[in-house]
């Protein structure tokens, strides 16, 4: 289950969230009818998904958007655990897309900077 306050994933038998300390009720069932509403709205992370799709790595950015799109619908239907899981996945895949865009970019910048410096040593400016 997930902590209703901070969203930390927890085993079903703990009495208190070990991330934020919020007391956690033991749920008889994990269907949407039995879930407690979250204390703060579950973020869809759609902004991160859009940003990484438009700048970074295509397939993973789209995956992130798909998960982000699910969050609000699941929240509206009461499936808070599903919404929390989709929210986390949207963030994770955005991060993967970000790394796929960032790492080649950093290598590229380093190579250019090294190349410029190496080139400058050979020429008189």
């Amino acid at each position: 289950m997930f902590c209703p306050k901070c969203g930390q994933e927890l085993p079903d038998d703990v009495a208190r969230c070990y991330s934020c300390g919020e007391p956690v009720e033991h749920l008889q069932a994990t269907g949407p009818v039995q879930q407690r509403p979250p204390l703060t709205p579950i973020p869809s992370n759609l902004v991160w998904a859009i940003l990484t799709t438009l700048f970074c790595c295509l397939p993973f950015g789209i995956v992130a958007i798909v998960y982000a799109a699910q969050v609000d619908g699941k929240t509206a239907s009461g499936d808070y655990a599903g919404a929390r899981e989709a929210s986390n996945k949207a963030r994770t895949w955005s991060f993967v897309a970000f790394l796929c865009g960032l790492i080649p970019m950093i290598i590229y910048i380093i190579l250019i900077v090294i190349g410029v410096l190496a080139g400058a040593a050979d020429h008189n400016f």
Binding site: S44, L46, I62, A69, D72, G73, A76
Partner: peptide
């Protein structure tokens, strides 16, 4: 707007108000 809210929340603890949007907004974006 989303980035500004994220940075404000990370540095000051409070983000910008969430813009109300229908539940299918993400699907529309997709």
């Amino acid at each position: 707007y989303g980035l500004a809210s994220y940075f404000l929340k990370s540095f000051t603890g409070r983000g910008l108000p969430v813009i109300p949007s229908p539940w299918w907004t993400g699907w529309a974006v997709l």
